[in-house]
């Protein structure tokens, strides 16, 4: 990472605790680049995260105010901080289990309120930290430690969920699309109202080795094959799209 970005880090806590090849580190870099390019002062920012690997992206790595809270509740904590001190730029960064499963109610209500938060959901499709259990975002058929014969429950489409609940900026990118991802994070941060960015982030350790591949690069390649842009998806049939992940901006109002 460029040395001029080190000022955003607590470098003394590095290396990160993430497994080798974890997509969360790529996302961490993307967030900091987005902030740097926007010229934000980190002293005016608050990063709120819950429990899980994704929650460790800001806490303790970011040299800013960080609030590392209970499992599933970062959006609610962030709501209180933002409402009382609107001058704070409040960003929630946490995993799919945290934001979309145990904390799903707070997510949809934040979207309904259209409160001025940016929520970045690091979605690895699995409970990584606790040992690879099935998540509300695990694709159909995938093997996890609690679905050894394959997941039989449909996953949430988080972007559709937030859109339906009233989010006013909604996008999805994979970490392999790092440049569009940085741009989208910038748009989310600049957006007034609830912005939600779902970021597909490979977990080689818990997800990859049971399903795709244990190497990080092969997982990125698989993601690349599975993702289609929103524009291309509009030309495809539903059968064709069945196992695809649509990426891009879905709401930009």
């Amino acid at each position: 990472m460029s040395k001029h970005l080190y000022k955003y880090l607590r470098t003394e806590v590095f290396p990160t605790p993430f497994c080798s090849g974890c997509g969360h580190g790529i996302l961490m870099g993307a967030i900091l680049r987005a902030i740097d390019e926007l010229g934000y002062d980190m002293d005016g920012m608050l990063f709120v995260s819950g429990i899980g690997c994704g929650a460790w992206i800001p806490s303790p790595h970011f040299a800013a105010d960080t609030l590392h809270v209970t499992h599933g509740r970062p959006v609610a904590f962030a709501t209180g901080a933002k409402l009382f001190k609107p001058s704070l730029k409040v960003v929630v960064i946490s995993g799919d289990g945290d934001i979309a499963s145990i904390g799903g109610n707070h997510l949809i209500h934040a979207a309904r309120r259209d409160i001025d938060l940016t929520i970045i959901c690091a979605n690895n499709g699995i409970y990584g930290m606790t040992g690879g259990q099935v998540a509300a975002s695990t694709p159909l058929g995938m093997r996890t430690s609690t679905t050894p014969d394959g997941n039989r429950e449909r996953p949430f489409d988080l972007c559709k969920l937030v859109e339906a609940a009233g989010g006013t900026y909604v996008s999805r990118y994979s970490v392999h699309q790092v440049k569009p991802l940085i741009r989208s994070i910038q748009r989310g941060l600049e957006h007034t109202g609830l912005s939600f960015i779902e970021v597909l982030s490979p977990c080689p350790t818990q997800f990859g080795r049971r399903n795709v591949s244990g190497t990080a690069f092969e997982m990125l390649q698989t993601l690349k094959e599975d993702c289609v842009s929103r524009q291309k998806a509009e030309t495809m049939g539903s059968e064709e799209l069945k196992y695809k992940i649509v990426t891009g901006e879905f709401v930009t109002s």
Binding site: A76, G80, H109
Partner: peptide, 21 residues
């Protein structure tokens, strides 16, 4: 703020407390 449940209420309070409330 009227929150979505009591879990949210106390969470919002803690966030606000650290913001100076």
């Amino acid at each position: 703020v009227q929150m979505e449940d009591e879990i949210g209420s106390i969470a919002a309070m803690i966030g606000a407390s650290w913001a100076g409330a």
